[in-house]
Nucleic acid binder design. Structure first.
Length: 287
DNA sequence: CGGCAGGCGGTTA
DNA sequence: TAACCGCCTGCC
């Protein structure tokens, strides 16, 4: 049993595992499979229990009636409090967003339990480099291949070996051929070079430093700012968000600058949260 | 077969 | 500096 510790938090509001783990911010959490005969949630996803990874730890996370229960291989209470952003009042965020832009009402109600996780920076960098021009099932698959090939073993559970996310050194030292074998496509060169840059120059902390890394452009940089550096003003514009901004504000799909401008006018300092509520709502609804 | 998936780097005008 | 274009891969 790898989940040897149990940490619980009570009276947690604005928390829903499906929303948190399926809103596109993170790729290594999966819904726990139900036994035959038990009902599933929407899209076959069990609403209450997920297993996955945070930093060097693996965990099984459940939520019921305000109680967040984390069975984990390790990590302090503070670590998990920070990871799930429990110190932030999402009720206030949603209220403020809707007050300033009533069009966000449906999206914030639909994804009411979204929280922006406090993820490891290096993992976020590599994960979003992989995400470019890619789809979610393959992004997940690519990341798991990378972990199996280059990550440290964490332990075993249910007959499966579990692996941590690779260290910067492990990826910087990876050979081109080995990376190519993982079917990462042209992203493998970006991964290797970014890992090397991370090792040599230290962890990036500004948008400019991120953009200087090979394979990181405006969209990926904004994702890293939002999910890895906790800059909740960052507003990543991907193909979905382009469609959404066109739909909501009649902005041309080519006018990305106009989209940034409108986002900051309408969503202000909470632009990053707004992006997550909108993305989750529209992707599930299919516009 | 072309088109697309949570784009980016490089080249061109 | 804006507009194209090719790109690994997999799935439709």
């Amino acid at each position: 049993m790898i989940y040897k510790e149990k940490i619980e938090f009570d009276n947690i509001r604005d928390f829903e595992p499906v929303h948190i783990f399926e809103c596109g911010q993170v790729f290594r959490w999966v819904p726990e499979k139900r036994k035959e005969g038990e009902p599933n949630g929407q899209a076959g996803i069990v609403a209450d229990v997920y297993t996955g990874f945070a930093g060097a730890y693996t965990a099984r996370v459940g939520f019921d009636n305000g109680r967040l229960s984390i069975e984990t291989s390790g990590g302090s209470r503070e670590f998990w409090h920070d990871y799930f952003d429990l110190g932030t009042d999402y009720g206030e965020i949603k209220e403020t967003l809707v007050k300033n832009e009533p069009k966000l009402k449906d999206a914030t109600e639909y994804g009411y339990g979204i929280r922006i996780l406090n993820q490891d920076l290096f993992e976020t960098i590599i994960s979003f480099i992989i995400s470019q021009n890619n789809n979610i099932p393959r992004i997940r698959k690519n990341i798991e291949s990378l972990c199996e090939r280059y990550g440290e073993e964490i332990g075993n559970e249910d007959g499966k070996t579990l692996y941590a996310f690779p260290t910067p050194k492990a990826l910087a030292d990876a050979s081109e051929d080995d990376l190519a074998a993982l079917k990462l496509g042209y992203r493998s060169a970006y991964i290797k070079e970014s890992a090397r840059c991370y090792l040599e120059k230290g962890s990036p902390c500004t948008r400019e430093e991120l953009l200087n890394m090979h394979g990181i452009g405006p969209k990926v940089a904004n994702c890293i700012m939002l999910f890895g550096l906790r800059d909740v003003e960052a507003f990543p514009i991907d193909t979905w968000v382009k469609h959404i901004m066109t739909d909501m504000y009649d902005i041309s799909g080519k006018d990305v600058q106009g989209m940034y401008k409108t986002a900051y006018e309408k969503f202000g300092k909470y632009a990053g949260y707004a992006q997550q509520y909108l993305f989750y709502y529209y992707r599930d609804k299919g516009l």
